[in-house]
C-alpha cells in the first residue's frame, strides 16, 4: 500500500482492489475550467492512473474566480499543459496527458482507450458531441454543468441508461454564464466523487438519476430519469 493513499484504506469498503482499480483506470477529462479544476485535483490525488486532459483554451484573468488550478502567473498559458504541470507536482506516480485541442478535433484513438469520459465542458453543443463519442465507443459519460449557484450531475452508460440527448437540447444555450467559484468547486468535487465511486466500487453512482444542486437555497434534489424512447442519439 502506498502511504499517500493510507486514509483511503480507513474507509469502509476500501481495499487494494478498489485502489488498484483507480490505478488501472483511464479517464478523459473534457475541460480544465471551473468544474475541471477541483475534479482534476481530486482524481490525481486519489490515484487514478491515467488522466487525459483536453482543453484548447488559454488562461485568462477572468478564469481565476473559479479555476483553482491556475495562478496569476499562468495567465496566457494553455490550460491543459498548465493543469498537467500542477497535477504532476501533486502526484508524480500517475500518467497525465495534456491535449491542447477541442474534443471534436481529438482522434478516436484517444476515446477508445478510456474507461470513463468526464464532461466538464461549458456548452451543450460540445457536450452532445461527447455524448455521441460515448455511445459510439460504449464508454460511460459523467456529465456535470454549473451556472450561478446551481448545478446538475448524472452518469450515463450506453445501452443501460439515458444519454445526454435524452434530456438536453443542443439548441438551448440560453443559460447565464455567471458562476460563483465555490459552486463550481462543490459540483466539480461531487463529480470527482462520482468518478471515484464508479471506477473503484461500481456502486451507488448516478445512473438513471440526475442530481440537481441549488446552492443558493441549499437544496439537493435527486430525480429519477429514464431513456427517452424517441431519442435521436441512443434509441
Amino acid at each position: 500500500m502506498e502511504k499517500r493513499y493510507l486514509r483511503h484504506y480507513s474507509v469502509s469498503e476500501w481495499n487494494d482492489d478498489a485502489q488498484n482499480k483507480l490505478k488501472n483506470s483511464s479517464v478523459l477529462v473534457a475541460g480544465a475550467g471551473g468544474l475541471g479544476s477541483p475534479l482534476l485535483y481530486y482524481l490525481a490525488s486519489a490515484g487514478i492512473g491515467n488522466i487525459t486532459i483536453v482543453d484548447d483554451d488559454i488562461i485568462e484573468d477572468s478564469n481565476l474566480n473559479r479555476q483553482i488550478l491556475f495562478n496569476e502567473t499562468d495567465i496566457g498559458q494553455p490550460k491543459a499543459e498548465t493543469a498537467l504541470n500542477k497535477l504532476f507536482s501533486l502526484n508524480s506516480s500517475i500518467n497525465i496527458c495534456a491535449v491542447h485541442s477541442t474534443v471534436e478535433e481529438l482522434d478516436d484513438e484517444f476515446y477508445k482507450k478510456q474507461d470513463l469520459l468526464i464532461d466538464c465542458l461549458d456548452n451543450f453543443e460540445t457536450r452532445l458531441f461527447l455524448n455521441r463519442k460515448s455511445i459510439t465507443h460504449s464508454i460511460p459519460l459523467l456529465h456535470a454543468g454549473v451556472s450561478e449557484f446551481r448545478g446538475q450531475i448524472t452518469l450515463t452508460e450506453p445501452g443501460k441508461t439515458l444519454c445526454l440527448a435524452c434530456f438536453l437540447d443542443s439548441e438551448n444555450e440560453n443559460f447565464n454564464d455567471g458562476i460563483i467559484g465555490a459552486a463550481a468547486g462543490v459540483i466539480g468535487s461531487i463529480q470527482a466523487l462520482e468518478a471515484i465511486k464508479y471506477l473503484a466500487l461500481r456502486k451507488n453512482y448516478l445512473a438513471n438519476r440526475i442530481l440537481l444542486i441549488d446552492l443558493i437555497n441549499m437544496r439537493f434534489n435527486l430525480i429519477n430519469a429514464a431513456r427517452n424512447k424517441n431519442c435521436n442519439e441512443c434509441s
Binding site: G31, G33, G34, L35, G36, D119, C120, L121, D122, N123, F124, R127, A144, G145, V146, S147, R150, G151, Q152, L162, C166, F167, L168, D169, N172, E173, N174, F175, D177, I179, A184, I210, L212, I223, N224, A225, A226, R227, N228, K229, C231
Partner: peptide
Amino acid sequence: IIMINGRGKTLKDVLSEGDVLALFPPVGGG
C-alpha cells in the same frame, strides 16, 4: 430539461391525465 414521468420530453409533447411534468432551467457552464 423537460421530464414527463421521469422521461425526457419536448415542448411539443402532449400531456395525459395524471402526468407529472418537471421543468428545469439550463445549467450549462463548466
